[in-house]
Design a protein around this nucleic acid. Structure first.
Lengths: 109, 109
DNA sequence: CATATCAATCGCAATATTACGATAAACTAA
DNA sequence: TTAGTTTATCGTAATATTGCGATTGATATG
């Protein structure tokens, strides 16, 4: 079916899965890392950095924007992207909260 | 195309994206959480807990097993699943390492 | 042995994702 | 205005994911 049955899961489960999904592609990881590395705002040189077509990059940027992880401000003809620190912290906290639920456990089988 | 161009990204980027993907579905999140909650190993009652068909649960379990996050040992007619603490720690470390790359930053645009 | 139970796998249908060329929209500069 | 630059969007093709019914294989139990 390809259609996730979101209604049978909790809001938290759906949201966490959505967060994971936003980062579940190497291109989006690479975009985030590039935005972080180049301290200042980075515009369209992502196309040169990664080996993907402009349309593809734009699509990934859109997904990251929809996820809230990045912001884009128009600057002349180009657009300036950067991480949204607030959302970043939320992601970080959500991931930490998830991973902390299983600590120092030993496998039982 | 639907085919990720893995060869243009680094190993780390591909691996991290793969990890995210393994958890990028509410059913898999729910499975993990259920395994954690019920301290002891839980076998086939996942089908009763979540509202998904047996075949679907089995498929998600397989993906989690492929990701290394869970182990399954046969116990009579049923199978006993639990988290692999070693891999869990690796995931935790990888996610932390990723999120720590952007700290106390302020949005620049 | 026959039957019941549990989990994995197969096969299929519906939908989602990834990628890209082509085009459009917005702005700059000449 | 015209041409050039940059990014978004559209349309399309290839592939992946999700979900489930049906079947299979393995192991109990009568």
């Amino acid at each position: 079916m390809g259609l996730t049955k979101a209604e049978i899961f909790t809001d938290k489960q759906n949201k966490l899965a959505q967060m994971m999904k936003a980062l579940a592609h190497p291109a989006r990881i690479a975009i985030i890392q590039h935005l972080i590395k180049s301290q200042a705002c980075v515009c369209g040189d992502l196309v040169d950095e990664l080996g993907l077509a402009q349309a593809t990059i734009s699509q990934h940027l859109k997904e990251l924007k929809t996820a809230g992880l990045i912001q884009g401000t128009i600057e002349g003809t180009s657009v300036c992207y950067c991480i949204d620190p607030k959302v970043w912290k939320q992601y970080k906290a959500a991931f930490e909260a998830f991973f902390v639920t299983f600590e120092n456990g030993s496998s039982c089988c």
